[in-house]
Every structure is written in structure tokens, then in C-alpha cells.
Amino acid sequence: MFHDVKTKMIAIILFLCILVGMFIWYGSLSPNPNLNHYPGDKEIINDYDSHIGEIVEVGGKVISTSPLTIEVKYGTETMDLFVSGVEEETLEGDRLTVFGTLQEDHTVTATRIVIRPRINYLYMYVVSFIAAFWVLYRIVSQWRWNRTKKALEIRERPLKFKEVLSIFKGGFSNG
């Protein structure tokens, strides 16, 4: 692709700029129900009143089951929303996503909901951590940073478990 180090650096800076540009571009997009993109947590917290009567898709932790209340978060701001029209059983701490109509008085009438049990979140984080470690292990074992070429390359011989561990312990100082 790019042969010399300088060109590579320019390319990476350019790609990073494109990525940041995409972050800003996407952040400026407004919901469009015609494209199945409905107002969500961010829009409701930023301007609740202008979305009253609209179909919304919001999510949050269940903070009370009677009446069913979820805490919607965006950044450091939170909003408690009552959820009506739900027959399924929920527990405090579960995560609820609600598709429904936004009403006055901080209420959303649910058309459909998705419940994610609290305990399953712990499971998800634990197995995701295991996966991240597995991938990191394989990268260190099979790829290396060539300091002369200033590039990643495939090792001629994959490192053994003990060798990978010693690199982890040495804070990758052995490359």
C-alpha cells in the first residue's frame, strides 16, 4: 500500500482525520422514522417536549417495578421515565429497551420491549474480557513490531506461551 514510513504516517493521520470527521458527521444526524431511525435517549434528554407524541426507542436500567420506571442516561444527565403497557415481569437492575409512544409527564407507552436480565450483563463483560485477552495473546504470539521497518509483521516462528507471558510481564518491551 504505502511504502515509506513518512507516507504511511501521513496516510494514518489522514485516516484518523476521516474517522473524527465521521464521528462529527454521525453526531449531527437527526432521527428519521422513515428510515427506522427513531428518537432515542439523547434526543429525549436534550429536548423532551418536542418529542411528545412521537414514536421513540429508549433504553435504561429498571429503577422501580411499581410503577415500572427506567433511568435513561446520556452522558452525565439522567431522566426517569415511567413505562406503561408492559405485561412482562421485570426486576430492578434489568436493562429495558422500549419502543413506544412518548407521552407527557415522563411516560412512554410501550408497543414492544426487550428485557436484558441484570445477571447476563456480568456474563457479557466477563466473556468479552476473555475474548479480548485471547486475541491480544494471539497478536503478541504471531505478530511483531519491526523497529527497523517501523511496521507490524508476521513472526517467522510463533512465540510459545511462556514467551508471550514474559512479554506481557515486560510490558511489551521486548517487541
Binding site: M1, F2, I12, F15, I18, A151, L152, E153
Partner: peptide, 12 residues
């Protein structure tokens, strides 16, 4: 774009 960034870091 993230794929392009990593591919650029890899030897030609």
C-alpha cells in the same frame, strides 16, 4: 477506515 489504519501499520 479502522481496517485501513491497521493495514497501513502492517509491512507492505
Amino acid at each position: 477506515v479502522s481496517v485501513l489504519i491497521i493495514s497501513t501499520l502492517v509491512r507492505v
